[in-house]
Amino acid sequence: MTVQATPVDAYESGARIGLFRGNKPIRPGRIVMWTLLLMGGIAMVMPFIFMISTSLKYPWEIYDLRLIPNEPTLENYIFVLADGRFFRWFLNSLLIATLTTVSVVFFDSLVGYVLCKFDFRGRWLVFIAILSTLMIPTEMLVIPWYLMSQSFGWLDTYWGIMFPGIMTGFGTFLMKQFFESVPDDFIHAARIDGLNEFQIWWQVAMPLVTPALSALAIFVFLGNWTAFLWPLIVTTDTDLYTIPVGLASFSVEAQVQWELIMTGASLATIPTLVVFLVFQRYIIRGVVLTGLKG
């Protein structure tokens, strides 16, 4: 049997979602809310639009604040892409962000799972110790990291850039909380089914927390893609620069090449945009579930 929507149904459903308001006045609270949202949206989008606009301008036009250039040009893009360094920095960032993300997703979820599902002496102590690392600002850690890298000969290496981020307290905490939502009976059933503990984690528990994994992967990838301070400190070799460090190098004492910085930044946003567009529903879910902003 098929059920056809009558005009009345359509009206009622439309009214429910606020499409048809009839003669009802729109509440003032709603107007304030929309205005605030609109202002927030503009504040968020304007720097992005301005960045694109600047990347399409000649150097003599960059201090003209008009959004649409008088003489739009792609010369900056041609220059940046023709310069082999940008491509190298792009690959460096991609490699570092990808490897770090894989590492964090693997190890943080493994540790989070163990802390959540295994009962052992000192479990809470370990968890609190991991949580307490979240309270130490990166700036405080930079000097110990540097001294450590110097001692181990990690300066100017990929490993030197990556090692502080291969496991994170935040990721462990996030994953532990998500594993709480996996009923123990799944794990017991898998134990009876004959899986070992690693297989249970990998084959049963991990697929059940895919949204959390996606959210964590996105947070970590974006964090590493945009990381600036530590890669700047640990690298002096321009071949090892990541994109943010490389872009900063366009700004030298004598001159700041804004048009090139903006062009590089515009290109650098492409992967982050792709990540956002593909995984945005997971990001939203992650933010909603964890109450954390990206």
Binding site: D185, H188, A189, R191, I192, V204, P207
Partner: peptide, 20 residues
């Protein structure tokens, strides 16, 4: 003896079917 070697099968209250 670990559960998998006890030669038992268990049906749980909430079924514990793997949703994926």
């Amino acid at each position: 003896v670990e559960p998998k070697y006890r030669n038992i099968a268990m049906v749980f209250q909430n079924y514990a079917l793997y949703p994926h």
